[in-house]
């Protein structure tokens, strides 16, 4: 085997190895299924509850993506405003920092008062938890344009709008896509938190109700589905990043 194939197989080997070690530990120490179910128990329960898992993950996926979409729109607009105007930056930044310091789970009860339980609070929690890194990254991309670059364009006769469109936005693309990878995982966290606290749909709700029925393997099945969805969305964001800002990677083959 060449070094390259070994490198490519590594993630699979580690993942499979992790589950094998888990299974062996459970059997070796004869752990109670209520404490830590073995992967085989979890798998059995996952097959049994496959339709429920599918239904609830679809719901979680929906609220995550809806919240994430909102976060992208608002985050980019906000980041563009902060990054291109000193005045807006001065005014808005402290407020944003303050807002970002609030643990978002604390907002869920308020969202429930406003919108009732269910889909809307989940979408909004996913949104509020994930727009901040997007806004900050876009603003950074815009604010760190080299002075030489803007000087060259201004002396050619470019307007502020020209500079924003031709330099600012293309330049902040790698920053934006780097933040999307973080934001998609965050909005996923937001969705699940809201579902756990206040919903009758979604993986978070499924896990909560499984645990109150002492069906621990199903709780773990929910966890594994969450991990799987998280990886899939992260990879999707990473691939989008590679496609749209290949120039920032200069032909190297990193996907992370």
């Amino acid at each position: 085997m060449t070094d390259r194939t070994i490198e490519r197989l590594m993630p699979w080997a580690v993942t499979i190895g992790f589950f094998v070690v888990w299974e062996i530990c459970c059997r070796l120490f004869d752990l109670d299924v209520f404490i830590l179910p073995a992967p085989s128990d979890i798998w059995r329960e996952a097959i049994k509850f496959a339709p429920e898992l599918a239904y609830h993950s679809a719901q979680t996926l929906y609220t995550t993506l809806a919240g994430f979409g909102l976060a992208v729109v608002v985050g980019v607009a906000l980041g563009a405003a902060i990054g291109s105007s000193r005045l807006v930056y001065r005014g808005l930044y402290p407020v944003l920092i303050g807002f970002n310091s609030i643990p978002k789970v604390a907002l869920v009860p308020i969202l429930v008062i406003w919108f009732g339980i269910g889909t809307v609070p989940a979408i909004l929690t996913a949104f509020v938890i994930s727009f901040f890194p997007i806004a900050v990254n876009v603003a950074t991309g815009l604010a760190t344009i080299e002075r030489d670059m803007t000087d060259v364009l201004r002396s050619l006769g470019a307007s502020r709008r020209d500079i924003l469109l031709k330099v600012g936005l293309p330049r902040s693309m790698p920053y934006l896509f780097a933040s999307l990878k973080v934001a998609i995982t965050l909005s996923f966290v937001g969705s699940v938190i809201a579902e756990t606290v206040a919903s009758n749909k979604g993986i978070g709700y499924l896990m909560l109700s499984a645990s109150s029925n002492y069906n621990v393997p199903l709780v773990f099945a929910g966890l594994l589905v969450l991990a799987l969805l998280g990886v899939v969305m992260y990879v999707a964001a990473a691939m989008l990043e590679m496609r749209t800002s290949a120039w920032a990677f200069r032909g190297s083959d990193v996907v992370s």
């Binding site: 080299e146 030489d148 000087d151 060259v152 002396s155 050619l156 006769g157 031709k166 120039w247 920032a248």
Partner: peptide, 14 residues
Amino acid sequence: DVGMAFQNASLMPW
């Protein structure tokens, strides 16, 4: 309509 060139080429990498 003035042309400028600096020590740093500052080309747009994209």
